[in-house]
Design a protein around this nucleic acid. Structure first.
Lengths: 136, 136
DNA sequence: CGGTCATATGAACAGTTCTTCACAGGAACA
DNA sequence: TGTTCCTGTGAAGAACTGTTCATATGACCG
């Protein structure tokens, strides 16, 4: 949290914008992940940013389910469910096991599972603190 | 919240979707968070799903930074930075401290910080596995 | 075989999102 | 005081997203 906050108005590698704390800027920039990693991470978060997909993935936390059951649990239409699963499959977040005409989906990404567990724990925690629903 | 397994038979002949594993559907449904919590959680993930905002938040992991420095670090224009910070502020993810004409932003959500730490750890981990590219 | 069932897919469309541009406000500073 | 600097904001437009409808595929049943 400490910063040697003198105003060093040094141009940073031909950048047009001014810099206030050049040391911190340099340090933070050096710690910034590579662009591809950032985009991949943002993509994962994006997959979790839709309530339907989130329900889908939370439903899979306990084990595999077929598409029609997932449709019932999530409240999505079967088509929407299939589209969502396709997206998740394309990103290797879920995997599918086929048995006859059924398709059983399961979580296939330990990282996403951790994110889901964390999110779930947080909602339970905040529910314990605020038993009444809060608007904001 | 409460759906028992006896709905299977009626659902099979009913108008809507059929259920394969009624017990699992009931169990998973009962564990599904409330709609408002789901939407809130999805919103948080949505805030992390943009590479620009992600860079912004990662830059703030170490402490506060002013808007122009954030703009430099993230590569966003100052206007885009301000818009993004406004969004994050509206969701209480960041907080601002004003000093003169400067505005210093900081992370203000422990939950988001955990998510960011986890994401960062994951990218570092995968980088350790695939050390193909390096950052300056 | 024909029919039905579970899932998959494509097109299209409403709604959202992210960026840029233009400008406004308030603080510092001459 | 007037000017410059840092930040904030609204509008607009391009790009993206998520849903539905219609239809396809392939497995099972009779």
């Amino acid at each position: 949290m400490n910063s040697s906050s003198q105003e060093q108005v040094t141009a940073l590698e031909g950048c047009a914008t001014r810099v206030v704390d050049a040391d911190r800027v340099a340090a933070v920039s050096s710690r910034m992940p590579a662009e591809t990693d950032l985009v991949d991470t943002a993509d994962i978060f994006g997959l979790l940013s839709d309530p339907g997909r989130l329900r889908l993935l939370l439903a899979l936390l306990d084990g595999e389910l077929c598409v029609c059951d997932l449709s019932v649990v999530t409240g999505l239409s079967e088509s929407a469910t299939s589209h969502a699963l396709r997206l998740l499959r394309a990103h290797r977040v879920v995997a599918v096991r086929r048995a006859g005409r059924m398709a059983y989906y399961r979580l296939d990404d330990a990282h996403v599972r951790m994110l889901l567990d964390l999110a779930l724990a947080h909602t339970e925690h905040t529910q314990a603190i605020h038993p009444e629903r809060r608007d904001s």
